[in-house]
Design a binder for these strands. Structure first.
Lengths: 343, 343
DNA sequence: TTGTAAGCGTTATCAT
DNA sequence: ATGATAACGCTTACAA
């Protein structure tokens, strides 16, 4: 079974290749009968146009790329779903590009641009320590979504990029503020040890302590080793177990993701203590599980669907050379649930 | 900032295009100095080869495609992670193709084959009601992984496809057997309303009831509407709430995914009842949350990592024309946890 | 309405 | 070791 080409279809139908091309691409100037015959033949012989050849020739490809830092993270679930739907509604294709922990998202994006002639790119996750000079080499418009702190300024006539995200530092600060307001003086903090997201969260944590006149104690900070799959329940569980065993004094645990918080809750429960009576637990990011866990978990609900929606809209605005808001910072919502209480 | 081509690089360096090509592709027959100079120029001008042109010319592309039914499902998380790593270790690239609920995975695979010249395909999810004649049109080897019931027989000299999965029907049957052995006579069943996976689970459920001499009652069956995002906690929660309100008599709920089971647990808890004292709950698929939920949830642990690993291995065996086991059915493990008890 | 032919940016086969 | 040049499969002027 060999790959059949447009030439052979043309021969089969006794027409020229351009006629076949016209049939495929719904050009108007073609005899309906000829077109039908060609389409039938295509179906019969299972001809599929070679997209490499198409892309080589075409200037546009109607493809949007989503570049995701660690796609296996359950956090992206809904967002992916929304992006997929929105892009399809606009009759575009979506290609997903995973970025492993040790890969550079900008380099991958640069590749994609050439390779797939994508019309636009959405970055999901990462984008904290990117090389701006490399990023500027991107010709197509892009949106940094649900992560990152900033985008490069525009230099050309049209805006080329935008940021749609939450402000991690401020959000985390507000959570710690809340926990302080509950009367906690010693808040254990489970964060990522990297210099990107983890650093932002930590800054928020520190700022809040300072504001609330509390002392910062390095012993309360648990830094998850950067490496693959940080945001797992298991990780939250294990480090909380160690924390509990260590004998360090604290009354509350704040984890920067809900999955980590779930692990923390279970670790507390398994140690024979109760949440929130013995230890309070708070998470962040607002995944479903925080709402349905028992006890339900106090969290910062990030507007993930909104971010996804707005990212797509903004990207298409960029593509269509409309004016856009360069930096959209969407606020999260602190949701008090059963896992925390006033002391 | 225009896209620079190989021709311009050649001109810039005062060499022919083939020399540049040799430099890029690490061909041996090139003067190291020339090569260095070319590489420097490439770096300076940020030249990225056009992959469409490359793929057009090349016969191989070193790309593996993973075609996933509903990528937003958290179930795929680890598997995606493993696949990504394994494929990278073998110096191949991975492209992810989402299949929406209303799309046909085989058609998309056919497209991918042409478009990206992929060397092999792994199907994740779906593949229950595929059109075998279309599937046979795939030229590259493929593995149906973690889903599906069967693969087409081989016709050529070399095997072209394989199946690596669990037997849903048998697994579900064993879970219901277990629940019966606990003394449950009326087991509510939350399943997917589709004719694929949902049907397999239901068959297992029915078979078990029959075997255990219990009556099948349609009122106990909750069929989730096919449509997007079936396996959400929220879905499990909502339908359990309705079930509880309906007044139908039952002592146990079995849901075909752990996320659904989590929702069921919370619904029971919110109704003022306890798990497992008032209602037992069992899930299936073995996601982390089942282990860490409170109460932890009895489930069927599918060997997801094993399936992913074995799928990659098998795919590369197919690619390298080695003999493979056509149908690898890996068994799940029933894990008794806190959410069920003997009556 | 249709066919012919010139690219698109590569790689590979020849010569040199 | 290097440079022309012919594909690769398609789209699109341009001609007919």
């Amino acid at each position: 079974m060999e790959q059949i080409t447009i030439k052979e279809v043309a021969k089969l139908c006794g027409v020229g290749v351009s006629t076949v091309s016209r049939a495929i691409n719904n050009h108007p100037d073609i005899n309906p009968e000829t077109k039908q015959k060609i389409l039938d033949t295509i179906r019969e012989y299972n001809y599929v146009p070679n997209n490499s050849a198409r892309n080589l020739k075409r200037t546009d490809s109607n493809t949007i790329a989503v570049v995701i830092k660690e796609i296996s993270n359950s956090y992206w679930g809904v967002m992916l779903h929304v992006l997929e739907r929105e892009v399809r509604d606009r009759k575009y294709c979506l290609v997903l590009q995973n970025v492993a922990d040790d890969e550079d998202e900008v380099e991958l994006a640069l590749q994609l641009e050439k390779e797939k002639k994508v019309k636009g790119i959405i970055f999901l996750g990462g984008m904290y320590n990117y090389d701006e000079s490399r990023l500027r080499m991107l010709i197509v418009p892009y949106v940094i979504s649900g992560s990152g702190k900033t985008v490069p300024e525009d230099t050309g006539t049209y805006p080329k990029s935008a940021l749609v995200t939450t402000d991690t530092e401020i959000e985390s600060q507000s959570m710690v503020d809340y926990l302080c307001s509950c009367g906690h003086k010693r808040i254990a903090f489970i964060t990522s040890g990297d210099e990107g997201l983890g650093r932002c969260h930590l800054n928020g944590y520190k700022r809040s302590l300072e504001k609330n006149g509390l002392e910062y104690d390095e012993k309360l900070i648990i830094r998850l080793k950067p490496g693959k799959r940080i945001y797992t329940i298991e990780n939250g569980y294990n480090c909380t177990c160690e924390l509990l065993k260590s004998g360090v004094d604290f009354s509350c645990i704040y984890a920067i993701s809900d999955t980590l918080a779930v692990g923390a809750c279970r670790a507390v429960i398994d140690s024979g203590k109760r949440v929130p009576e013995d230890y309070c637990v708070a998470g962040a990011d607002g995944q479903d599980i925080a709402e349905y866990y028992h006890p339900s978990i106090t969290t910062l609900k990030y507007p993930r669907v909104e971010i996804a929606l707005q990212s797509v809209r903004t990207l298409f605005d960029l593509i269509n050379r409309k004016k856009v808001v360069k930096r959209q910072i969407l606020g999260g919502t602190l949701i008090e649930r059963e896992s925390t209480r006033k002391l």
